[in-house]
Design a protein around this nucleic acid. Sequence first.
DNA 1: ATAGGTAGTATCAAATTAGGTACTGGAAAC
DNA 2: GTTTCCAGTACCTAATTTGATACTACCTAT
Lengths: 121, 121
Amino acid sequence: MAKDLDPDSMHCNCPVTTTLEILGGRWKPIILYCLQDGPVRFNALKRMIPGITQRMLTLSLRELETDGLILRHVREVVPPHVDYAMSPLGDSLRPVLHAMNEWGAYYRTQTTPQKARSDAA
Amino acid sequence: MAKDLDPDSMHCNCPVTTTLEILGGRWKPIILYCLQDGPVRFNALKRMIPGITQRMLTLSLRELETDGLILRHVREVVPPHVDYAMSPLGDSLRPVLHAMNEWGAYYRTQTTPQKARSDAA
DNA sequence: ATAGGTAGTATCAAATTAGGTACTGGAAAC
DNA sequence: GTTTCCAGTACCTAATTTGATACTACCTAT
């Protein structure tokens, strides 16, 4: 997803694009999904999301944190514990995630079970 | 945006991801936005979206069409007219786009006017 | 006769995003 | 004393997405 678009090229300056920039990417939605029910630690997330590499998890968490959607809390024990939790701003995203979830589910019912586009590709 | 993810790698099989695959990309949201108030022709879209190339417009429209969100109608006149309109399925996306629009606007009010992340990058 | 509008394609290059593998350092468990 | 867990970082490559430019073919207006 393109960050830092040239404002001049964005004639509509559409807030939808802002949302997409923040939610976009391969891993962010599932991370947010995993944090919905309370704080989760780094390696716990890694186990909850098979297929993600440490690198991608770190990068995605950093971006979510920079965008203010999640909070990172380091407990200075040994070994260090770091847990990630939804921020209030992240919480405000819930209705959006919910709408997207509903629509995605609906969309699947409306397309042929054999996944039309994947087959075409 | 990654199409055709390996289902095995998607443990949550999250509908949000489906929505993101379909809405994602640089130009799709703005195209949908432009079609909200009725059919628009190819070159009219091009003029409404400064910065888009013909190629990207064509590709984006093709994908939106393949995903069933828009309808392509060729009028066999000379020169040929092609207009693009929201399909019923595309219409069903409106609440989602609306939620994303609201949140994107809200998000902008919650972050420093100087665009924290762009500056950090 | 030349230029401009219609809706695109084709080809190549650049930018962005994602993934793979190896590595860190300290503590605890075996 | 070697391995494992913790939360990462560094480095390099692969895949995907986007962009620039040039081209098509037909018709109309000047």
